[in-house]
């Protein structure tokens, strides 16, 4: 009993550290991959990793501004809560998709001073799609407690309709509310004069972006999260699946950006409709 609790805590800590290490790499991918595909010369992720290291050193030693600290706390909490390698984390019972999703969106609204006219158009549809996701999970997999319960349930009894619906929901979320770009962050930090504070805010934005991508990845492919009963080999499979699904979501986001398909209300509505259709079809088929 004691051993199991310790293992779960250790896994949660490992998950946090691993994902925080991945954060600068994903930020680099989001920033430079579209340019690389366009044929420009890009540098490696060393700069991103170094600035992230500096940021965390500063965060450990100095106090942060309260607003920024709240956004970072929301991101860290979501990182620790969502299922990553297996569903055996210590805080897995808190991983409710609607809760985590709205927390992240609120964090997005609290970062700097966004222009509400633009940001509202992105966040409000995303909240509706999150409600739809929660509704579809409750409809197609009743009895599942949050994302952890959903993963476990899908391992026992696959529900193809729900999986397809979740994929469509994730596409709708990715289209309506893509991660923050460099320009968005610059616009939010307009009033901020202090250079250290600006760098810090940029790093917080990177962490927030990464957690949003991580949530999308978990929602898109909940079947790829391993179960704690699978043993050591299952654990390594889960680790590989974690990296693979994050990479997949990043690729999808980059493709959406390159083809200028994001932030389109019509496509969001279309994919939300597809999700509803798939889930209902799956329910009526059984």
């Amino acid at each position: 009993m004691m051993m199991a609790v310790l293992l779960a805590v250790a896994q949660t800590l490992f998950q946090c550290v691993l994902l925080l290490l991945l954060t600068p790499v994903v930020a680099w991918l989001l920033e430079d991959l579209p340019r690389w595909i366009n044929g420009e010369a890009v540098s490696g992720p060393v700069r991103h990793v170094r600035s992230a290291g500096l940021f965390w050193r500063a965060a450990f030693r100095q106090p942060l501004a309260p607003g920024m600290a709240l956004v970072l706390a929301v991101s860290l909490l979501s990182l620790a809560v969502l299922p990553a390698v297996t569903t055996g984390g210590a805080l897995i019972s808190l991983a409710n998709p609607l809760l985590v999703g709205i927390l992240l969106l609120v964090g997005r609204l609290m970062l700097g001073r966004p222009s509400l006219r633009d940001e509202g158009r992105r966040v409000l549809p995303a909240v509706l799609v999150l409600c739809l996701t929660e509704a579809l999970i409750a409809l197609a997999a009743p009895g599942a407690d949050g994302l952890g319960g959903l993963c476990a349930m899908l391992h026992i009894e696959p529900v193809p309709g729900l999986e397809g619906a979740l994929g469509a929901c994730v596409l709708a979320l990715a289209i309506s509310c893509p991660p923050l770009r460099e320009g968005d962050t610059l616009q939010r930090l307009e009033g901020m004069k202090d250079r250290a504070a600006r760098d810090m805010a940029r790093q917080v934005a990177q962490v927030l972006n990464f957690v949003w991508i991580f949530l999308l990845a978990d929602l898109a492919l909940p079947i790829s999260v391993g179960l704690p009963e699978a043993g050591l080999s299952g654990w390594f499979v889960g680790l590989a699946a974690l990296l693979a699904r994050i990479l997949l979501v990043v690729m999808v986001l980059v493709t959406l950006r390159l083809t200028a398909q994001e932030r389109s209300e019509r496509l969001t509505a279309l994919f939300a409709g597809v999700a509803l259709l798939l889930a209902l079809a799956g329910r009526f088929a059984t």
Partner: peptide, 26 residues
């Protein structure tokens, strides 16, 4: 939630508050 889902908000509040306090170092 009546269908097996549970919402543990107090735990979220406590964890969030703890992380925030640690970051702010008040």
């Amino acid at each position: 939630g009546g269908d097996g889902a549970h919402l543990r908000l107090p735990a979220i509040v406590l964890l969030l508050g703890a992380i925030w306090l640690w970051l702010v170092k008040s």
